[in-house]
Design a protein around this nucleic acid. Structure first.
Lengths: 204, 204
DNA sequence: CATCGTTTTAAACACTTGTTTAATATTCTT
DNA sequence: AAGAATATTAAACAAGTGTTTAAAACGATG
């Protein structure tokens, strides 16, 4: 232990940024070492292999990916408000970590990787917030549209994550600058919130 | 010219499947050659380089990606019906080509690649179907919610493509088999259709 | 200061990468 | 059938890959 950021942490940080922007196959050990200002051998000295380092980064990224959800769901507010706040927070979060959804989804599609892992833990953590019970209750009382968990999460994730994931595609198709698209995202967040709330919590 | 499928086409076919499942960086020239049952040198003999072959595949994939849209939009039906049919067809299409959206979006995020290309042609092709004019007209008549093109496409694409893209992630989180998730997709398509139509074409 | 364990380095390992070359096989043309 | 053009091959190229090794630099403890 010497400075604030030890060599091990420097490598981990560098690995995170490189892995998240380029993916596991899109970068080399040497690239990570260089980004950390270190020798290549040090990467394996601390983390044994590129794969092991990656798994570490991936796991942490996955937790980040789920973090904001859990926070909001734990609050004690009407379900409809939770939904609004959640979307608000999710758009904020993804604006800060725009590479995350693509990274997670891509690496989940690599056969070798992460596929068989214990990602059901995530679901349990979310379940601990009581959000799922709240939904079931609201559905039973007729305050919320009846729908299983999978579609519920799909609806929310689709409308929050896709607009970030497809950023470059949409910019290219619609000929927009980054700034213009970011403005568009703010507008879109409003539409998404309105649409989801109206559909999930129908009035009358 | 010899058989039905010439060597050149065999390589192109193999390249398509390999590129689409593994991405540009996720595979090697030799892997493509092997998949086509050919020698490595033949890949470059016909296509000069891995990059040039990729650009060919990517361009074709992009056109596939947009094909189904154009077909539906060209039909002569009420806008609301068009929307329903479009979602139906899009889910069908993506069931047959589940790797497409991820492929397109990922490769659009690779700095070297495809970014500065002429993807605005796509928009023009869609514009030629008259769908955008129809929307503007419907919006002016108060039959359709006022919203710019970007958000409109975003809403539809998000809810059609994301559920396919996140297949492995969702399966892992919710502990579902492929068959269970495919069933879920059918259900979800219904929700998405209802939600989008209700939101875009409000009654009263 | 000498010795120990830890950290860092340069160099090498065997292997894969994209691409090229030069020789061979095949096909087409006359 | 002979020769020209095309198609296919094995082999080589230099550069890059993940990983290992063995030596050097470092920091603490005696």
């Amino acid at each position: 232990m010497k400075k604030d950021t030890t060599t091990e942490e420097k490598i981990k940080e560098a690995a995170r940024t490189v892995f998240l922007t380029k993916g596991f196959e899109g970068c080399s050990s040497r690239e990570i070492a260089k980004a950390a200002g270190m020798n290549v051998a040090l990467v394996n000295y601390y983390f044994r292999s590129k794969s092991q380092l990656f798994q570490l980064i991936f796991k942490a990224a996955m937790e980040d990916f789920m973090e904001s959800m859990i926070y909001v769901f734990s609050t004690d507010q009407p379900l409809e408000d939770k939904m609004r706040i959640f979307i608000e927070r999710e758009y904020d979060f993804l604006a800060k970590h725009p590479e995350l959804p693509n990274f997670i989804i891509n690496e989940m599609n690599r056969e070798e990787a992460c596929a068989s892992n214990e990602h059901s833990v995530i679901l349990e953590k979310i379940a601990e917030t009581g959000i799922f019970n709240d939904c079931q209750k609201a559905q039973a009382e007729g305050k919320m549209r009846k729908m299983n968990l999978i579609s519920l999460t799909l609806l929310v994730m689709s409308n929050c994550q896709y607009p970030i994931m497809a950023k470059n595609l949409m910019q290219s198709i619609h000929q927009l600058t980054k700034e213009e698209y970011d403005e568009q995202l703010v507008l879109h967040k409003g539409y998404v919130t309105e649409m989801l709330v109206q559909y999930l919590f129908p009035k009358q």
